[in-house]
Simulated scan of single mutants.
Amino acid sequence: MKASFLNAPKGGPRHVAIIMDGNGRWATMRGRPRLFGHHAGARRVREILKACPDLGIKYLTIFAFSTENWKRTQDEVAGLMSLFRRYIIKETRALSAYGVRVRFIGDRPRLDAKLIALMDELEAETSNNDRVHLTIALNYGGRDEVARATKRLAQDVAEGHLRPEDVDEETLPRYLDTHVLPDPDLVIRTSGEARISNFLLWQSAYAEYEFIDTLWPDFTASELRNLCISYGARDRRFGAVTS
């Protein structure tokens, strides 16, 4: 995994989150099965990831499989699960060598035992890396994450570890899957859809959004750089008024 040698835009985002949409349409446009597009999308992750350090991006979070994606055909779901297993096996050495720390967020119990074991191994293998922090949202949904976090918070209250009067907007994030990560600065969705699809609902309260027409397998490091430049030019006031 070689470096891309792009210049970091001034004032660019430190944490970028991406809804990688359009794999199926990309394949259909080429007369190929949808899984062909998902394989192409997985290869695109590699290019985008290796561009991150030169763009000043320390954290990259990607939406790989949502809690709603189980509604897809059985063949497509099975193909995606096989792709995830193959990706982890194939990419572990390169990710570790490139200094990438990998984390997975989402509800793991519904995933098969072999995939969960591979996820655990990849997290352990890369746990000491710090060049780029790659977070993969797998069987993830923002509402599901908040519900699971609330259950854990309620359990701590019930057991006396936390007083109800001490619960505020700073408390819940400590129970989220992303509790060790900074909130995303920029959220990108490819493929022309202009919705967030239950992705990082709590964390993205003050994120900047970019909805672009490019299908994910065609998304390039140069396009990412342009979006980072656009981000750097925005006036982020967080509710305040500047003179």
Rank of each mutant, 00 (worst) to 15 (best):
H133F: 07
L115A: 03
T135S: 05
A137V: 04
A117K: 14
R103Q: 08
D130W: 08
L134G: 01
I136L: 04
L122I: 14
D107W: 15
N128S: 09
I136Q: 02
A117E: 11
R108W: 14
R103M: 05
F104Y: 10
N128T: 12
E123W: 07
R103C: 08
D112E: 09
L118M: 15
R110S: 12
S127W: 14
E125F: 09
N128H: 09
E125T: 15
F104P: 00
A117R: 15
L111S: 08
D112Q: 06
D130T: 14
Y140P: 03
I136M: 03
A113Y: 13
T126P: 01
L118Y: 15
A137M: 06
P109E: 07
T126K: 02
R103F: 09
K114W: 10
L134E: 02
L122E: 06
L134C: 03
L115Q: 13
L115Y: 15
A137H: 08
D112N: 14
N128R: 14
T126W: 01
S127Q: 15
D120V: 06
V132G: 02
A113L: 11
I105T: 04
I136P: 02
I116P: 11
I136F: 07
Y140R: 00
I105D: 02
A117N: 13
L115N: 12
E125H: 15
A124W: 10
D130K: 07
L122Q: 05
N139D: 14
V132E: 07
N128P: 03
G106V: 00
D112R: 13
L138R: 01
S127H: 12
L122N: 05
G106M: 01
A137I: 01
L134W: 02
I136D: 00
A117D: 14
K114S: 11
V132F: 01
I116A: 13
L111V: 05
D120M: 03
L134Y: 04
E121D: 11
L115F: 12
T126C: 03
I116M: 09
L134H: 05
A124Q: 11
V132M: 13
R103V: 07
E121F: 10
I105R: 00
L118D: 10
A124K: 10
M119L: 06
D112A: 04
L138F: 14
A124S: 08
E125L: 06
L111H: 14
D130A: 12
E121M: 06
Y140D: 00
I105Y: 10
H133L: 06
A124Y: 11
F104V: 00
R108D: 04
S127P: 07
H133G: 05
M119G: 01
L118K: 14
A124R: 15
D120T: 15
D107T: 14
H133S: 06
A137W: 13
N128Q: 13
D107L: 04
R110K: 13
D130R: 09
P109Y: 11
R110Q: 12
A137G: 09
I136R: 01
I136K: 01
E123S: 08
R110L: 08
T135R: 04
G106F: 11
I105W: 13
